[in-house]
Amino acid sequence: MRVGAEAAPYDQKEQLKRRGYRWNDGRDGRPRAWWREVDEDMLTAEVSFLQREIYLREVWPHTQRLTAFDRYKAEP
């Protein structure tokens, strides 16, 4: 699963980096956001982390189920 932390507070960027999030600048058509890929069974824990440590409120971040084709396709 790809988890997106859209509109995350700027002062939380170092914590997101430490957690393994990467920045997407939006040039590829995806949202400008921090993102990370996690196994489906870890999705609930990752959402809890974002709610508790990053947003400090209950949110449901953008998630995308990835297939092997999606994950490893060549970028244009």
Rank of each mutant, 00 (worst) to 15 (best):
1 M>I: 14
1 M>L: 15
1 M>Q: 14
2 R>V: 13
2 R>W: 15
2 R>S: 07
2 R>M: 12
3 V>H: 05
5 A>G: 12
6 E>V: 11
7 A>V: 15
7 A>G: 12
7 A>E: 15
7 A>D: 14
8 A>Y: 02
9 P>Y: 14
10 Y>Q: 13
12 Q>M: 09
12 Q>C: 09
13 K>I: 08
13 K>P: 00
14 E>W: 11
14 E>T: 13
14 E>Y: 12
14 E>D: 14
16 L>C: 05
16 L>P: 01
17 K>H: 13
18 R>G: 10
18 R>E: 11
19 R>H: 06
19 R>W: 02
20 G>R: 04
20 G>H: 09
20 G>K: 10
21 Y>A: 04
21 Y>R: 03
21 Y>H: 08
21 Y>S: 03
21 Y>P: 01
22 R>A: 12
22 R>S: 13
22 R>L: 11
24 N>R: 15
24 N>V: 03
25 D>Q: 04
27 R>V: 12
28 D>P: 04
28 D>F: 07
28 D>W: 09
29 G>M: 00
29 G>H: 10
30 R>L: 08
31 P>V: 06
31 P>E: 06
32 R>C: 07
32 R>V: 12
32 R>N: 04
33 A>L: 02
33 A>E: 11
33 A>Q: 15
34 W>S: 05
35 W>C: 01
35 W>R: 10
36 R>A: 09
36 R>N: 07
37 E>I: 14
38 V>G: 00
39 D>G: 01
41 D>R: 01
42 M>L: 15
42 M>K: 14
43 L>Q: 02
43 L>T: 06
43 L>A: 07
46 E>L: 04
46 E>D: 06
47 V>L: 03
49 F>R: 00
49 F>P: 09
49 F>S: 03
50 L>S: 03
50 L>M: 03
52 R>G: 02
53 E>K: 14
54 I>G: 02
55 Y>R: 11
55 Y>T: 07
56 L>K: 10
57 R>A: 08
59 V>C: 04
60 W>H: 13
60 W>N: 08
60 W>M: 08
60 W>Q: 14
61 P>F: 06
61 P>T: 10
62 H>V: 08
63 T>M: 09
64 Q>S: 09
65 R>L: 14
67 T>V: 10
67 T>H: 10
69 F>G: 07
69 F>R: 15
69 F>I: 15
70 D>H: 13
71 R>F: 07
71 R>K: 11
72 Y>V: 02
72 Y>F: 12
72 Y>N: 05
72 Y>I: 04
73 K>H: 09
74 A>Y: 03
74 A>P: 01
75 E>P: 01
